[in-house]
Computed example of a mutant assay.
Amino acid sequence: MPHIQDLWSRKFWQLTGRKVDLEGRERWLDAPVSRSPRVSTEWLEAEAARHGGVLGAEDPRAGLLPTMAALDGPGFDAALLHPDIRDFYEHTAAWQMEVWTGWSPLFWPAGELVSRLWGRRVEQLALPMRPLDVARGMDSRVTPIRDSRDAQVAAAWTRTLRGDGRPVFSGAYSARTLPGAARPSVHVAFPLESGNVQVFLRPSVLADGGFLLESPSGRFGEDGAYVVVRDRGAHAARVPLHETFHMYVDAHGVLRTDHELRVWAAPAVRLHYKLERAS
C-alpha cells in the first residue's frame, strides 16, 4: 500500500514538473525506479533485465565506471587525473571510507524532518544528520549492471552505516551525455517508488590532478538535479539542489573528498571523506 506522503509527493512533482517522453526526446532521463515504497535490491535485477543482461558477479575490484576515459571529451582528459583518483572510480569496491558530516543550522531542522518522515522509511537518500551517526564509518557495495554483451552499463553503489547497518542510499552510476553537450557527465540515479532523483555532474580535472564534479544551476536539459515521476505518464522537474565534489590527494598522500550540498546558493550540508584502499 503506497504511503500517503509518497502519493502527495508524486502529485506535487506531477503538477510542478513537465511531461516528458522517456523513450524519445527526454531519453536522457530514463533511469531505474523502485517497484515498492521501500527501496531494496529489487531495482538492480530489474535494471539489468531492462538492458537484456544480468547483474555482474560480486567483484572486490568493481568500479563506478569501467574506465574514467568514458568521460573524455573537449575540456576533460582522464589521463591527467591523479592515479589514486582514477583507481577509486575504476575499482571503487577496493576502497573503504571514513566520513564526517556537518549540517548548516538553517537546514538541519528540515533535514531531520525529511530523514525521519521519509529517508529512513524508504531507505533512500537518508543522509546522516549527526557526526556520531558516521563515527564508525560507512560500508559500501558496488555491483556492476551489464547488458546482453556483458558490457557495464551502470554500477549500483549501496552505502550503509557501519554502526547499525542502516541504509544511507543506493544509486546507479554511469557516464551519460546530455542533449547538445560536447562531452559526458557523471550520471547518478537514486531509485524511488514510481520515480527517481537524478543528478548530472560536470567533471573537470584540476591542475594538481584533482577531480571536480559539479551540478550547477542552469536550464532544463543541462547538468543539475532532477526529480522524475512515472505515474500516469512521466513528469520531470529540475530542482534547486546543487552539489560539488572535490577529490584530491593531500600532502600526506591520503585520498580525500570534500562534498557540499546547496539549496539554491545556500550551503545545507558538508561531508568530508577519507578514502583508503581496503586491506
Rank of each mutant, 00 (worst) to 15 (best):
G52N: 01
R116L: 11
S115I: 00
L125V: 15
W95S: 03
V39T: 10
F107C: 11
T177E: 09
D250Y: 02
D208E: 11
A225F: 06
H51Y: 10
V153Q: 01
A234K: 06
G180V: 07
A57Q: 11
V227A: 09
G171F: 03
V186H: 04
S34T: 04
P167A: 01
R270S: 08
L261K: 02
R38S: 01
W118P: 00
H51N: 14
G218V: 02
A156E: 06
V188Y: 04
P2A: 04
L80K: 14
S34P: 05
G209P: 00
R130G: 06
Q152W: 12
L113E: 10
G56M: 08
F211K: 01
K11R: 12
F200A: 07
P105F: 07
L113G: 12
V239I: 13
P60M: 00
T67C: 10
T101E: 06
S174N: 05
E90F: 02
G53S: 14
G171M: 07
A94W: 07
T177Y: 05
H246R: 14
V153N: 06
D59E: 14
R277C: 09
E42L: 08
A278L: 15
L44Y: 11
D6K: 05
V239M: 10
W103C: 01
V134H: 08
M97Y: 06
G171V: 05
